[in-house]
């Protein structure tokens, strides 16, 4: 059974169409990378699918009540907001009715390597540590589906990889993750499926090796890339801009 299905999801901002008839279905066990240039509609697609912004068309999550949706999908917004100096454990436990000793909370803290930080004030941590705390909060919601908007932005390389490996492990457990990314190398390496957005439209959708071709990257991103198969898997390096 699909964890999320959108049908012709369309978002207008004034006269401009920021998301144009996006239809997408997410199955259990998928790790989906949502890529596209700035303004292509990645965040818009995720937020419209959740029903956080008004949209035309259908989305299974947007039709749910807020409470039912909270059990069906977790959402990690791009803006890393922590308004008050609360403890890390409390922040993560917000996903579990403030039960700081709930097994889901402890598991999420452990998974993000935060057990030693549990009693620290979240606002006193570094940007990268805060990002891990917020990922832990989303994991603690313990939902079959996780939607994350640019979760690796601002993280050092080790934590970028760590974050993607955590998401891939979730997919390995039969959950699904949809993650918007700017780093095409991370997308190529860690995702089981790539969805490409350009000017609000889904222009490609499939396994990384089929979707991430030099022609498509030149067309959508206006870049020339080096793509190689290595013993470590697929490697993708942006090289230069292409004049259009």
């Amino acid at each position: 059974m699909s964890l999320l299905t959108t049908q012709n999801l369309t978002v207008r901002r004034g006269a401009r169409v920021t998301l144009d008839h996006a239809s997408l279905s997410v199955e259990p066990g998928e790790m989906i990378g949502l890529i596209g240039p700035n303004g292509a509609g990645k965040s818009t697609l995720l937020r419209a699918a959740l029903g956080l912004i008004p949209a035309e068309g259908d989305s299974t999550l947007a039709q749910m009540s807020p409470t039912a949706r909270a059990k069906a999908a977790a959402w990690l917004p791009q803006a890393r907001e922590i308004a008050w100096p609360v403890s890390v454990a409390h922040l993560v436990s917000l996903a579990q009715n403030e039960r700081e000793d709930a097994p889901e909370v402890l598991a999420a803290l452990k998974r993000m390597d935060l057990l030693d930080f549990a009693d620290r004030k979240a606002t006193g941590l570094s940007g990268g540590e805060q990002a891990r705390v917020l990922i832990a909060r989303a994991l603690a919601q313990d939902t079959p589906l996780l939607l994350a908007d640019e979760p690796t932005a601002g993280l050092d390389p080790a934590h970028q990889i760590g974050c993607m490996e955590t998401f891939a492990a979730l997919a390995g457990e039969g959950r699904s993750v949809v993650v918007s990314l700017h780093d095409l190398g991370l997308a190529a390496r860690h995702c089981t499926r790539i969805v490409v957005l350009s000017e609000g439209r889904i222009v490609a959708d499939g396994p990384p090796r089929e979707v991430l071709t030099e022609a498509l990257l030149a067309e959508v991103f206006a870049i020339r890339c080096h793509i190689a198969e290595t013993p470590e898997g697929m490697v993708l390096h942006p090289l230069s801009q292409v004049k259009r």
């Binding site: 917004p77 907001e81 922040l91 917000l94 403030e98």
Partner: peptide, 17 residues
């Protein structure tokens, strides 16, 4: 308001109306 510590979108995604 406890959940709003994480911002409006995160709070809404945790079931806050």
């Amino acid at each position: 308001i406890d959940r709003l510590t994480l911002g409006e979108e995160a709070a809404a995604s945790m079931g806050v109306n």
